[in-house]
Amino acid sequence: MRKVVFFILFVNLFLFASYEEGKKVFENKCSSCHQQFIEIKKIKENFFEKDNKLLNLKAPTANMLAYAIMDSPKKIGDPNDSEMREIEIEEYLKSYLIKPDKFNSICDEHILKYYDVKPSMKGELSDDEYVNLAIFFMQYSKHNKSKKTIKVNSNFDEDEIVLKAQQNNKLILVYATSKSCYYCKKMDREVFSDTKVQKSLNSNYILLEVDVDNKALPFNLRKYYKRVTPSFFVLNSNANLLKTYVGSWSKKDFLDILKENIK
């Protein structure tokens, strides 16, 4: 009988749990210490090359925590039993947040020395919030897929890029963006993540993504740049400018742009 009651309680909690609700819990209760996302490449550089002086992190980021919980050598629960795993993750979060202990941490032991001692969060989260937080970490990877599945060339050796474009019969697409550009982030999330867009780009273009706040546009494109991000410049395999597209585009319109330049 107790098992039946427990199962019903679990199902009810699980049905009302969601990634978005867990994200709100993280933002409201955890983000004062934990940043939301930093690229793994930059995190590795920070800890293993810069002795944490690049980012000065005092706590792991959300993506670091999600990796530690779901995929690291110290991962929690059985990946083949999602229901029981959710319970185990929830219980771990409760035990650790109520009584933080570095010896009970699942984070990389080599970087624990950089983190501050975490204060107890006893009484700050409800049972529902723990459930939602567990779901947030479990589904984090699915909801934060990066457009990096698109092949991006960031080394602007112009002669080498032209040679590669000619050898592979590809066009060159220069994407002018910036970290502060809202519409760039919107396109990254809604357009570049699409499999059809990725397939068209990888098959027909060499994509050069340029943060114009930190790097000059290649191929003398500066004279055509109207200081609007995002902007897209399509060049042929000889690096001659064919067309310029200024502004943000929907998935359908951007696919049409890619297609209209392919012979």
Score class of each variant (00 low, 15 high):
253 D>P: 01
58 K>I: 14
240 N>T: 05
172 I>Y: 01
241 L>F: 07
128 D>M: 04
248 S>Q: 09
186 K>L: 15
219 F>K: 00
204 N>R: 06
44 K>H: 05
239 A>E: 12
66 A>T: 03
54 L>G: 02
196 K>C: 09
6 F>K: 12
77 G>L: 08
50 K>R: 05
106 I>P: 00
244 T>M: 10
37 F>K: 15
220 N>I: 09
152 V>H: 03
6 F>N: 13
59 A>I: 11
96 Y>C: 01
41 K>V: 12
54 L>K: 14
17 A>T: 05
211 D>E: 11
151 K>Y: 10
56 N>V: 06
38 I>H: 11
148 K>R: 06
156 F>A: 11
11 V>G: 05
167 Q>K: 14
36 Q>T: 09
239 A>L: 04
16 F>C: 06
9 L>P: 00
163 L>T: 13
174 V>P: 01
10 F>G: 03
68 A>M: 03
168 N>I: 00
66 A>I: 03
170 K>L: 02
177 T>C: 05
102 K>Q: 07
30 C>I: 09
108 D>F: 05
67 Y>Q: 08
172 I>G: 06
158 E>P: 05
73 P>Q: 07
132 N>C: 07
35 Q>T: 04
156 F>L: 15
156 F>M: 15
22 G>A: 14
97 L>P: 02
135 I>N: 01
168 N>F: 02
114 Y>Q: 05
123 G>R: 08
150 I>T: 11
23 K>G: 08
74 K>L: 07
177 T>D: 05
180 S>I: 09
23 K>W: 00
19 Y>H: 08
139 Q>K: 11
234 V>E: 07
250 S>A: 08
38 I>S: 08
30 C>T: 11
32 S>V: 11
251 K>H: 06
92 Y>F: 13
29 K>T: 03
56 N>A: 13
97 L>G: 03
130 Y>P: 10
84 M>I: 13
107 C>S: 13
103 F>D: 15
140 Y>G: 05
131 V>L: 13
31 S>C: 02
90 E>P: 00
244 T>G: 03
195 T>S: 15
16 F>W: 13
